[in-house]
Computed example of a mutant assay.
Amino acid sequence: MSRRYDSRTTTFSPEGRLYQVEYAMEAISHAGTVIGILAKDGVVLAAEKKVTSKLLEQDKSSEKIFQLSGNVLTGVAGLTADANSLVNYARNAAQNFLVSYDDEMPVEQLVQRVCDLKQGYTQFGGLRPFGVSFLYAGYDPHHRFQLYQSDPSGNYSGWKASCIGVNNGTATSLLKQEYKEDMNMQEALGMAARTLSKTMDTTSMESDKLEFAVLTLGSNEHVQPHILTPAEIDAVLAREKLSKSETDGAMRVDA
């Protein structure tokens, strides 16, 4: 039945479904996991990088976390080319706002701008939906720290903790169990690392397979977005006893 209605994004099935949008969301469910956690003093993003070859220059490829503006970071899951296009669009929108108003673009306004574009690609013939979902971590003085999730349909919503990508159901269940309203950044980083360890198809956690980013406030309410270096990621994994050396040691003890 679906084959009669899935050749156009503008054709609804008798059940009221748009199959092209559902196919885009299915593509995202096979992408690397991205987790966002809202803490009382910041926001954490953590992502699994799909390292396809040891010959790749890891510092220049497989990016999952991007800085959109001075107050917004985003993690992506899905088609990399689609993500790059939307990231560039969001950066241009944020910079135009900054030039016009001499202030950073409010987080939800930036999210809505990108989602308006994504929604447009679901209602015109000759187009296909963007096969990518985003987690946005941002801050503005009015609403403080915020975490948003958006999908290919153009829908977005605010979250305290969320996950997109492969095994997102497992990750969401773990986040529900462990999330606390008053957790700080260190606790949020640890929870993100533990959750990723349950969703990744590996027995050991290594910094070259992960990306972490934090959004915090510095002195004078100055927003500080920061993508963690491999050494900082290793420190997080060591603190949670998830690093490769820790897991190898545990396996030797069990043996």
Score class of each variant (00 low, 15 high):
residue 2 S to F: 13
residue 8 R to Q: 10
residue 19 Y to L: 12
residue 21 V to K: 09
residue 25 M to R: 01
residue 28 I to Y: 00
residue 34 V to L: 02
residue 35 I to L: 11
residue 40 K to N: 07
residue 43 V to W: 09
residue 44 V to D: 08
residue 45 L to S: 04
residue 48 E to G: 05
residue 49 K to T: 05
residue 53 S to M: 02
residue 61 S to Q: 10
residue 64 K to L: 05
residue 66 F to M: 01
residue 70 G to T: 03
residue 75 G to E: 15
residue 82 D to M: 14
residue 85 S to D: 14
residue 85 S to F: 12
residue 87 V to T: 14
residue 97 F to Y: 12
residue 101 Y to S: 03
residue 101 Y to V: 08
residue 102 D to A: 13
residue 106 P to S: 06
residue 109 Q to F: 07
residue 113 R to P: 04
residue 117 L to Y: 06
residue 118 K to P: 07
residue 122 T to I: 11
residue 125 G to E: 15
residue 128 R to G: 10
residue 148 Y to I: 07
residue 149 Q to G: 15
residue 152 P to G: 12
residue 159 W to L: 15
residue 160 K to Q: 14
residue 164 I to A: 02
residue 171 A to P: 01
residue 173 S to H: 06
residue 177 Q to I: 15
residue 178 E to L: 05
residue 181 E to C: 02
residue 190 G to M: 13
residue 191 M to P: 05
residue 195 T to D: 13
residue 198 K to A: 11
residue 202 T to I: 03
residue 203 T to W: 04
residue 204 S to G: 09
residue 221 E to M: 03
residue 223 V to T: 05
residue 232 E to L: 02
residue 235 A to E: 12
residue 236 V to M: 03
residue 237 L to I: 01
residue 245 S to C: 09
residue 250 A to Y: 12
residue 252 R to Y: 10
residue 254 D to C: 02
